[in-house]
Design a protein around this nucleic acid. Structure first.
Length: 423
RNA sequence: GGAGAGAUGGCCGAGUGGUCGAAGGCGCACGCCUGGAAAGUGUGUAUAUGCCAAAAGCGUAUCAUGGGUUCGAAUCCCAUUCUCUCCGCCA
């Protein structure tokens, strides 16, 4: 959620920058500012009303104490009037606040000044690439064929037991999963992150805190009886640790890492995008989350970007980094780097990680603050990134490393799997 | 799931209708003391929001959450949530 004061003072700037996300917010911004004026006016009236009522209550108290209770009648009559007025004002204030909030919540984060203009993924800017395109042998096939050939991932069984998008990992497939999780966690710990195991379901307030709600309601699995959401990413519970918290400036940067299952309904997806491991309803991901001083968040974004690159390098996967254009960015992000690995067998780039700076957008919703140098309570910046999501990494590893003898496991990972070939 | 007890500031803990945003203690910050430290001692120490250009200041709200009674609620009533104890069930 954007900060109200910021909107009020920079409405034109906000509109201009939201246009980069292809959103015409002029009208909404006008509305917000208009409602805000009325809201503050109402607040003032209500406060004055309550102040008078409080003063009278004190007077009555004094009268009672000095044995002049009889004189209180007139004052009581006045408070009755005030009470009626206060009730109306308070309802008006609630309505205005709610209206304003509903509008604020609809506004996406403003993109960073460096975000390229664009509408589709084709407009993303390639800022870096590394590694040679893999050359595959003649018998190379996509990972879903490899999965059944070596009996390591069973999509059919998933269909039977649960439904599409919930595969079983078997034998070396399962061990590969476990190895990757440990590999990613160990690397993160090495890089200074604290490992956390979060709950996999969260309440509504947490969904709002990180911005999944109300924007992505319908993309999360929801348990009706208990009003709980299955997490689409560990970002949600991990970031919400800091909801309604004032952290110490000395604690910056706060670095947490969490492995979790992720659950996504992916309503509306179809075709080659969902084939095999490309898009699942349940998948594994190691997520890194940082809370940082606003002055340092972009430095931190670069640090996280370099960290993710180092993982792909160790896995010997050729990759490129994209700076997302306005149209392809998420609702909550101010600047996002996507990492893509080339899948030679599918002849397409697969997104394996997304690293974002949310600036104060999440903090504002969550009321995550710190005391700055002047003792002023200020919103923190939050960042996160996948490091990494497993399915497409597995897809790339299987496809790019296939040989006539079997699938070769990169050395850094073989230490974790306990085998260097799937055959 | 059943029965009972409870929820107060960063923490502990007092407060059962009137000047309570809340005693006292701990912690923390700053000062004094000290060669330095400890001890001692003094002062300060919530959040949100409104007025104000801003600071200061003042108003308002907040004692789990939401409603209610009352001129006045941390205190009384109702609902919800959560915690603890006992019973049941169970990895």
């Amino acid at each position: 959620m954007l900060e109200l004061n910021y909107i009020r003072e920079n409405a034109d700037e906000v509109a201009k920058r939201l246009a980069i996300k292809n959103i015409d917010a002029t009208k909404t911004l006008e509305n917000i500012i208009g409602i805000d004026a009325r809201r503050r006016e109402t607040q003032k009236e209500l406060d004055d009303n309550l102040a008078e009522a409080n003063a009278i209550a004190r007077q009555i108290g004094d009268l009672f104490k000095s044995g002049k209770a009889a004189e209180a009648g007139e004052l009581k009559a006045r408070t009755a009037e005030l009470k009626v007025a206060a009730k109306a004002l308070s309802e008006k204030l609630d309505t205005l606040t709610l209206e304003q909030n509903n509008l604020l919540v609809q506004l996406p984060n403003v993109p960073h000044a460096s975000v390229p203009v664009g509408k589709t993924p084709e407009d993303n800017e390639i800022v870096y690439s590394e590694g040679d395109m893999p050359r595959l042998y003649d018998g190379a096939v996509p990972h879903w064929d490899l999965a059944s050939k070596y009996d390591i991932i069973d999509f059919e069984l998933g269909n039977k037991v649960t439904g599409a998008g919930f595969p079983f990992y078997k034998g070396k497939g399962a061990r590969l999963q476990r190895a990757l999780i440990n590999f990613f966690l160990d690397n993160a710990i090495e890089a200074g992150y604290t490992e956390i195991q979060p709950p996999l379901v969260v309440n509504e307030a947490s969904g709002y805190g990180t911005g999944q709600l109300p924007d992505k309601d319908g993309q999360m699995y929801f348990c009706e009886v208990d009003k709980l959401y299955l997490i689409p990413t560990a970002e949600v519970p991990i970031t919400n640790i800091y909801r309604d918290v004032i952290v110490k400036a000395a604690d910056f940067p706060i670095k947490n890492v969490a492995y979790s299952n992720c659950f996504r309904r992916e309503a509306g997806s179809y075709g080659k995008d969902v084939r095999g491991l490309n898009r699942l309803h349940q998948f594994d991901k190691v997520e890194i989350v940082q809370v940082q001083h606003p002055d340092k968040s972009y430095e931190t974004l670069e640090e996280m970007r370099n960290y993710v690159a180092s993982l792909l390098r160790k896995l010997e996967l050729p990759f490129r980094i994209l700076k997302l254009c306005g149209g392809d960015m998420s609702f909550t992000s101010a600047l996002t780097y996507d990492f893509e690995v080339f899948s030679a067998a599918q002849q397409r780039w697969l997104e394996v990680s997304s690293v974002s700076n949310f600036e104060s957008f999440q903090s504002n919703r969550m009321k995550l603050r710190f005391k700055d140098e002047n003792g002023k309570t200020t919103l923190c910046h939050t960042l996160n990134g996948s490091a990494l999501a497993l399915p497409r990494i597995v897809a790339s590893l299987l496809e790019n490393n296939q040989t006539a003898e079997g699938i070769r496991i990169p050395a850094a990972l073989a230490k974790y799997t306990g085998f260097d070939l799937i055959h």
